[in-house]
Design a protein around this nucleic acid. Sequence first.
DNA 1: AACCGCTTTCGTG
DNA 2: TTACGCACGAAAGCGGTT
Length: 388
Amino acid sequence: MEPVFFHIDLDAFFAAVEVLDNPSLKGKCIIVGGIGPRSVVSTCSYEARKYGVHSAMPVAKALSLCPKAIVLPARMKRYAQLSKEVMNIFTRFSPDVTQISIDEAFLDMTGTSLIYSSPRDAALQIKKQVFEETGLTLSVGIGPSRYIAKMASDYNKPDGLCRVSPGNEQRFIDAIGLKKLWGIGKVTLEKLAQHTITTPEKLRTYKLETLQSMFGQIQGSYLFNICRGIDPGIYAQEAKSHSISSEITFPTDIVDRDVLFQYLLEMSHEIMFRALSEGVIVRTVGVKIRDPEFHTISAQKTPDYPIYNATQVYDLAKQLFMNKWPLHTPVRLLGVGLYQVYSGEAPLQTGLFDESETKKRTLEKTVLELQKKGKSVTKATILHTSED
DNA sequence: AACCGCTTTCGTG
DNA sequence: TTACGCACGAAAGCGGTT
């Protein structure tokens, strides 16, 4: 049976939710993003986009382009709530819904022609139900593969609907151009341009082996495929290990080691709390540090034992920091991360804890439960733990 | 040759 | 005029070991 995929993208999602919750904002230039001096735009309303404002732009620059814009802080909890509602609506239309971000999902609609008169009709029904039940608009891309559907949803937005029928994949890719292809960013675009490759047509003149020697094995074959409208198949990932991290860009650069260590401590607790909530095994701890000139370094350590409490994370992070960062060098950004985070099913779980380690682990969980309950407790807990 | 640890780079929303 | 977050995954390249 002929495959049919939908890619659905909520329009200016964060900004749309803010308008939904405060209708007096309707029709205005809305920027959702950070409030600090070094923050960037997460999402902006289409009214703001007319002034050249876009995601990832520094808020200060956005305001110079569009001084009348209203800047609002992100309310992730609220967005997550509405996202869930919308995703639930999607499940009425397909048993195979894959959420890929807070505001995007793939639907495998293969075979649903028996239920809906056409893919277009199904898409219109989805748009209608989501709008009636939540007030949000969205854009739907329909195609013979997930990759094509993803490109199609971007083609005609907001409140868009675009279908690429089988056989037209390559024509469609040519129409949208290299810059808008999923997986080609600023750096790759520039590298392609240096080889005088500026269109998908030109890219197709290169042999697979040539592209692989130019861009590496994986990216070479990726480029070879997407410029022909062939799905690069990057969705089927067998869940291995993942990572949990936290980082902060300071409002002004920090030199004071004690202050930096205090941030390391708080972030260590926060990420280990998340790990323990998931009930996972952690193997690697890393830090990330950026100086005022944007030079960024990272350092990791994988001890030959698993990591089971926040104090361990902090001690390792502090060691890594001290080994890597010269005294008196200002820090713009500081981060801590857990890597090689395995689910409970991971082979490492069994037989690695002796009795006392198990006790410590249990204690840590209890402490972190307390932390959950309030800020004053959080502070006290962190201080207490650090002095132990 | 296969795998592991470490660091950097690139891309996404 | 400049201005540039955060969290995550994938991959490359290197040195090292099995």
